[in-house]
Write a protein that binds this DNA or RNA. Structure first.
Lengths: 227, 227
DNA sequence: AGCGACAATATTGTATACAATATATTCGCC
DNA sequence: GGCGAATATATTGTATACAATATTGTCGCT
């Protein structure tokens, strides 16, 4: 789920588009997602828009407030800790599993994600770079060949993107860390243990690059600040 | 999500009722869930029924087939393996965490779940017993105080219920295993390592009590068998 | 009788209409 | 002029209506 499944479910198209926009930081946490607006934009009725929003709400990318509408979620500090706790629990083992199973094609796919991330960074598109970084992690889960865990990780990555949007502190430093390169090498060597270790420390680095000591710097709409 | 959150989201009431029925094996895998039927039963419009079905579909308890309707999901053998793989990855660590944090009230809550399961079993209500068994596992996740992981485990438990409905082989044997008792004791002793070990072997036992060598014994509707 | 095409029926997909609730504005009062 | 209540507006929640698709039943043909 969450990822683009062609057009199986009703609002899948719209949900994917919104998820991508959130992931690339084009939609900021707290942004109101009016049903009529979205319906206008995508040329569909509110019915299908609501279905899409409900999906995103289930993935915790959107918060649904009764009789008030849908907003891009604003993960709390508590939630941020939980998400990274979950990632630290699941991703290292998954990376090990993936390293043991990786085929040459898998390694190539990973390399493409690294390249795409690098290109985006050089082009100054930090949002797209972040998205590609997420795809790298997701690709590892795919290689591990556990769809259930993959779906869970996908959710965690998407939420991480929101967390980064809210709590990221050093905007330029470390952004191009070669953690992914090292991981790729471990996978290419089928060194599962090392891949697991690298993933663990990579996630710790990510977490420590956040400032989870106080509330987010800026909410989107003025009313959100006041209310 | 998935669990009863009063009436925050639209079809939450209905989704919870259906999830419970599935969990207690009153709704078998493959059963068709017609929108008009459900609307009639719960006295609401198809709109809210659809919202509920979509939610359940996201949790993989229901399968949505385009232009054909909603059916109680029938997890494949592959999926069954994946679900238990995921549980084995997440639950043991969570049990350890819970053991280290458990308060006397937490232990009491766990004991109540064991009692409720025991009562249901003695009353011959295997479905309810299974549900209570699931609640025991969920309670452990709650004690660990990681809502994100808890939600994931909740989903896995619900899917396990479907898997058990399809692939359970020995109907009476081992059902009253005292694995939960042992786990409770480890938690009461704050013995995290032992709790982790016990949970690991408990999940292995559960998995090996299934027959995942060939397709399910009986699907609900005749067409499902043929098609 | 068996098979295939066509028509009838039922069910889902989507859009629209109305009701309920929250938000914004205006008017009156202090 | 500032504050608060009442009204007006906008937006969401739900139900219904219509369109599209799948399923079922019937008829005719071989």
């Amino acid at each position: 789920m969450t990822k683009a499944d062609s057009k199986n479910e009703p609002g899948a198209e719209i949900a994917s588009a919104l998820a991508l926009a959130i992931h690339e930081h084009r939609l900021s946490p707290g942004t109101k997602l009016g049903e009529d607006d979205l319906g206008e934009i995508y040329g569909v009725s509110r019915t299908v828009v609501r279905a899409a929003l409900q999906r995103l709400a289930h993935d915790r990318l959107v918060e649904l407030k009764r009789n008030r509408g849908a907003f891009v979620a604003q993960p709390s500090i508590r939630e941020a800790h939980e998400v990274f706790e979950a990632r630290s629990l699941v991703e290292p083992r998954t990376a090990r599993s993936a390293a043991e199973r990786a085929t040459p094609e898998d390694i190539e796919a990973l390399q493409r994600h690294i390249d795409a991330e690098h290109d985006a960074t050089r082009a100054g598109d930090a949002g797209r770079a972040l998205y590609q970084s997420g795809l790298f992690h997701l690709e590892i889960a795919r290689i591990a060949n556990q769809a259930t865990i993959e779906a869970f990780i996908n959710q965690l990555i998407a939420r991480s993107s929101l967390i980064i949007a809210l709590y990221w502190q050093r905007r330029n430093a470390l952004c191009e860390s070669h953690a992914h390169h090292e991981l790729l090498k471990a996978m290419a060597d089928h060194d599962g243990v090392r891949a697991e270790e690298l993933m663990t420390s990579h996630l710790v680095d990510l977490l420590t690059s956040l400032d989870l000591s106080h509330a987010p710097v800026a909410a989107r709409s003025l009313k959100e600040v006041l209310g």
